[in-house]
Amino acid sequence: MKRNRNLIILCVGLLAGLIAPLATGASDPGFYIEVLLGGLMAGVLYSLVALGFVLIFKASGVFNFAQGAMVLFAALSVARMAEVMPLWLATLLAVGIMVVFAFIVERLVLRPLVNQDPVVLLMATLGVTYFLNGFGQTVWGSDIYEINLGIAKEPVMILQSVFQGGILINKDDVAAAIAAVVLVALLALFFQKTKTGRALRAVADDHLAAQSIGIPLNRIWVIVWSVAGVVALVAGVIWGAKLGVQFSVSQVALKALPVVILGGFTSIPGAILGGLIIGVGEKMAEVFLAPIAVKAFDLAGGGIENWFAYVLALLFLLVLPEGLFGEKHIDRV
């Protein structure tokens, strides 16, 4: 089938791009693996944000532009509250805040806009984004705040015997990756094993059918937005611990949009894989491709990573519109 052929071509292309720096001898293996790990790390965060997107899209058909604002808001809440209380308590309270937020969104945005065109819902979440960014910074302030997870930030040198000069990795990166994996596993359990999870999947398949067998749609939405809020919280804390909590955190959502295109709007494995591909891809492009481009076109610096994800997504859109794991729809008239 055409889709399979395109999928294979894309995968081969991606793999070729991945190994090109090594194959052409542009980089020594140690450095290459450092870049790869750095990309994977960024990818984990993209995956987490994209996961929030996918959860909400599956359950409520909303393309939630506000996911990034939620990441910022959650991180701000944790950072500021942790100044006056233990981190665990601040995190717990922040979870509560995200649940309240989910309630408010369901009541004031989703319910009145039920059954609207997806583009209208997208624009509504743009409104939510602005409101939440403004509100968060009004309540919590608009400086840079720290989240201290108690993990040492010094890099550790490993595999010195294998590669010349060894490989530098950060402990907090490893912790973040583990946290992300645990979160995804918990989500998978939640979806597969609990009654609520089954209801969620039913809603994702067919809103009306789910409602007709007595699944309360509104409650499901609250739950899903809460779960997405918690995912945002985890992403925000990891990101904030690494780079500080500041406005730019919300911009990570813009990087997660291409991820859902790659993975497919409704696929959780797609979000994870897509995030990793984008994370690694843009890091590789920035480190290995940008210098070549700067030299060839006389650019004022690289910065390819600002658009690389989008161009990759555009490429996917043109040859594989449903994404890696998406579903195809047939138009009926």
């Binding site: 004031l108 945005v109 509504a124 409101f131 403004g134």
Partner: peptide, 14 residues
């Protein structure tokens, strides 16, 4: 300003 814009967008859409 951001809060007002955000609220107005939602208000008008609804």
């Amino acid at each position: 300003e951001a809060m007002i814009f955000g609220s107005l967008i939602i208000f008008f859409l609804i």
